[in-house]
Design a protein around this nucleic acid. Structure first.
Lengths: 127, 127
DNA sequence: TGTATATATACCTTGACACGTATATGCTCT
DNA sequence: AGAGCATATACGTGTCAAGGTATATATACA
């Protein structure tokens, strides 16, 4: 189950990671804060550890787990192209809104469509 | 299967999203570029559409799919605290390396541990 | 109208994984 | 050594989703 994205698909694991972002925690602390059975915590931690999301150190009977940057940075890297996309998208939206504002404010505004009457978006789906 | 993270856990879906970041594509184009059976493409697109990752418009027999920003922005938002974490982490690492460099270069350097001899990290696991 | 093209959906099967429960391992302290 | 705490692992179970194959729907074009 290696791949990074599948690992953070699990809500409990994301919760654990979010917990660790503030500081390292023992298994018991995680168990209590997330109100999750101990074997479950241990198992998720194992997955996270083997995938490099966390490291552990031994403190007597406890194990302290803490974050490791790499895997989440990988996710961040994957996201980069999309960030560029949606910043461009916001710009376009802003221009659009500006345009709306200066034509007929507070009215539904039929807004002529591209290429011929009633095509494209008009019969669009998106669900 | 709603949740955003589970949706991008699927490699083929990530591939589709990455394809769409450059421009909108028809199902057939995606099918060919990713060399993936058509029903598979359609099914993944359906999931992506219902989760708001993409929109579609009808162009005769084709459907053109294009990206929508929101859901991936949500992922990006979740990542934010971790970004803060690992930038701090890099700083610490840099300081550490600086320190190493000016003490005993090219030697293993026992590096006194916190709290008593041979504890903590010395018996550490991380696998 | 019929045929080809483009896309969506239905159905089935299989595998993975999250969960619970029980138990093992390891450490501490008396 | 024994009891108790902290954590890990083993095993059985149910669920769910991805893939494959077949088929339905819709549009273009002759």
């Amino acid at each position: 189950m290696e791949p990074v994205f599948e690992i953070i698909a699990e809500p409990n694991r994301r919760a654990i990671l979010s917990l660790l972002v503030s500081s390292q925690q023992s298994v018991g602390e995680i168990e209590r804060q997330l109100r999750m059975p101990q074997p479950s915590v241990s198992k998720h931690l194992r997955v996270l550890r083997e995938a490099g999301f966390v490291e552990s150190t031994v403190d007597a009977q406890r194990r302290l787990y803490r974050l490791t940057p790499e895997p989440l940075q990988e996710v961040d890297a994957w996201l980069a192209p999309f960030r560029r996309f949606w910043s461009a998208h916001v710009d376009a939206l802003e221009r659009h809104l500006d345009h709306m504002a200066q034509s007929t404010p507070t009215k539904k505004q039929p807004r002529r469509r591209r290429r011929g009457p009633n095509r494209e978006r008009d019969k669009g789906e998106t669900k």
